[in-house]
Design a protein around this nucleic acid. Structure first.
Length: 290
DNA sequence: AGCTCGACCTGCACGC
DNA sequence: TGCGTGCAGGTCGAGC
C-alpha cells in the first residue's frame, strides 16, 4: 500500500490516539512480520508514554519516553485501525472496509485509556523494531531527503542524478535519494512533469545542471504528494485511514492504473500505456511524456 | 559502487 | 465450480 502520503495519513490518524498517551500493554499475535520482533519487544514498550509520532521516509517513529523509538513500516499491505474503548463499544465491531480479516491482526497496542490500536498486515511485509535514539540515527543514515522539506530542489536533483545511468523511474524509486516515493507517485509526478519514465536520469542533469524538465520534476513531486495527503492517500487494496475511511486520491490518478484510458492532459490525444521497468508496472502517456 | 533481479507473503481478478 | 497464472502502494540480499 503505502507510500509517503499513505504513511502520513496514518500518522495523522494515530497521533491523537497515541501522543501523550501511555501504552499499557502490547499483544503480539505472532513472532514476526517481515523480520522477527526484537527480543522482549512487548515488555520493553509496556508502560511507556508516547512523546511524539513522527514520519521518516515510509517509516513511522513513535518516540517513547526513556529514549526508545518504536519504528514501524507498513510494507505493502499494512494498516492501523483505532478501536475506541469504553462502555458500549464492542471491540472489533468498528467498520473497517479493508483488512477486515482479524486473522491478520498481528499487533495490538492497548492504551491506558482503553483505546486499542490494531496493526493488520495480510502480506506481512511490514516491520516493527525498537531502537535507542543512537541506533535510530544510524538506521536512517542512508535514507534520502524528505521531499516535502524544501531540500528537494532542481539543483539537488541534478547533483544526485548526474551519474545515474538508470531510468528516471528507477532513480526516483531509490529511497537513498528521495525518501517516500513509490510506484504510484513516481508515475504521477513524471506525468505532471511531462517526462518519459524511460529517460536516463543523468540525461536530465548534463554537467550536473538541471534541465527545464528536471525543474518541472522538482516542482511536480511535492505538488503530487501534498495533493495526495490532502485526499487521505490512495486506497487501492489495503490502505484505509485509522478510522476506517478510505483515501480518495485514487480518483485523481492521471496515469497510474489507467492503462488504455485517455491521457488527462488538456489537448493531448495520447492513451495511457503500461510497461514494466525493473519488474514493476509503469504507467505513462507516450505522447506528452518525452 | 550501481544496477537488476528474485524472494519474501497473501489475496484477488482473470481465463480456461 | 475450480484451478492455474499473474499481479499488487516495498525492501533486501545476491550476483553481475
Amino acid at each position: 500500500m503505502p507510500e509517503l502520503p499513505e504513511v502520513e495519513t496514518v500518522r495523522l490518524g494515530l497521533e491523537p490516539a497515541m501522543v501523550n498517551k501511555r501504552i499499557a500493554r502490547v499483544e503480539l499475535r505472532r513472532g514476526d512480520l517481515r523480520r522477527p520482533f526484537p527480543p522482549a519487544f512487548a515488555r520493553r514498550i509496556a508502560g511507556r508514554k508516547v512523546a511524539a509520532l513522527r514520519r521518516r521516509a515510509k517509516y513511522l517513529v513513535a518516540e517513547l519516553e526513556g529514549g526508545l523509538a518504536l519504528v514501524m513500516h507498513l510494507g505493502m499491505s499494512g494498516s492501523f485501525r483505532i478501536e475506541a474503548g469504553g462502555k458500549g463499544e464492542t471491540p472489533g465491531r468498528f467498520h473497517h472496509p479493508r483488512n477486515a480479516d482479524a486473522a491478520h491482526d498481528h499487533v495490538v497496542f492497548r492504551m491506558s485509556d482503553g483505546t486499542r490500536i490494531v496493526y493488520n498486515d495480510p502480506r506481512r511485509f511490514g516491520l516493527m523494531d525498537l531502537l535507542t535514539d543512537a541506533a535510530l540515527e544510524a538506521a536512517f543514515a542512508g535514507v534520502g531527503i524528505e521531499p516535502l522539506s524544501g531540500a528537494l530542489t532542481a539543483q539537488f536533483l541534478a547533483g544526485r542524478f548526474q551519474k545515474r545511468q538508470t531510468s528516471i523511474k528507477a532513480a526516483l524509486l531509490d529511497q537513498g535519494m528521495i525518501a517516500g516515493l513509490g510506484n504510484i507517485y513516481v508515475c504521477e509526478a513524471l506525468w505532471l512533469a511531462g517526462i518519459s519514465p524511460l529517460r536516463i536520469a543523468a540525461d536530465l542533469a548534463p554537467a550536473g545542471r538541471p534541465t527545464p524538465a528536471l525543474k518541472r520534476l522538482a516542482a511536480a513531486i511535492p505538488k503530487v504528494l501534498e495533493a495526495a495527503i490532502a485526499a487521505g492517500g490512495s486506497s487501492l487494496r489495503n490502505h484505509a485511514r485509522t478510522d476506517g475511511r478510505l483515501g480518495e486520491f485514487q480518483h485523481a490518478f492521471h496515469v497510474y492504473d489507467r492503462e488504455g484510458q485517455p491521457c488527462h492532459k488538456p489537448r493531448c490525444r495520447g492513451t495511457v500505456r503500461r510497461i514494466v521497468q525493473n519488474g514493476r508496472s509503469t504507467f505513462y502517456c507516450p505522447v506528452c511524456q518525452n
